[in-house]
């Protein structure tokens, strides 16, 4: 690290950014972040559509296809009641899959990126502090 850090990154336009993305912008452009965002969104959207859409379809079916829902399955258990219980099962399975998906695909990447961001922020703060320290030091000497 040089003693006098450049005021911003565009100061040396010839040097490409390092392999480690550090600022929020570079993290957003990194392929890791993009794939994580994709994994997060596609699963979230699909799972929401399945569970919420499934339930709303069930409501519509109950309203407009009452005859079908009244077909008895076993004893007094009709297709409608069974489908209602299936909604609870569907939700349980969706939640289990979601937690597993997040733990495997999203959390590790997010943790890594968070650590990088944290590092870069700490470094920037240290630099700012060093600069400030220098400035105040100069001022101190100036009064003498």
């Amino acid at each position: 690290m040089s003693l006098y850090p450049p005021p911003n990154e565009s100061y040396y336009p010839l040097f490409p950014p390092g392999p480690e993305p550090t600022s929020p912008e570079s993290i957003r452009n990194s392929p890791e972040f993009r794939s994580m965002r994709g994994a997060h969104r596609s699963f979230g959207t699909a799972a929401t559509l399945v569970s919420v859409g499934g339930f709303l379809t069930y409501v519509l079916l109950s309203g407009f296809a009452a005859g079908l829902m009244n077909q008895p399955l076993a004893g007094h258990l009709t297709i409608g009641l069974a489908l209602g219980l299936c909604q609870f099962l569907l939700m349980a399975v969706t939640i289990w899959l979601y937690v597993r998906h997040m733990r495997r695909r999203v959390d590790p990447v997010a943790q890594r990126l968070r650590a990088q961001l944290h590092d870069s922020r700490a470094r920037a703060e240290a630099q700012a502090q060093a600069q400030q320290g220098r400035a105040s030091a100069e001022r101190r000497f100036g009064t003498w």
Binding site: A47, T48, V52, S62, L81, F88, T94, I95, Y98
Partner: peptide
């Protein structure tokens, strides 16, 4: 009966959107 049960189901399903998205 049935319509009431449907209503109870909606109360739970509402959390899916909150959790997933």
């Amino acid at each position: 009966g049935y319509d009431g049960l449907l209503y109870l189901g909606g109360t739970v399903v509402a959390w899916m959107m909150a959790l997933l998205m």
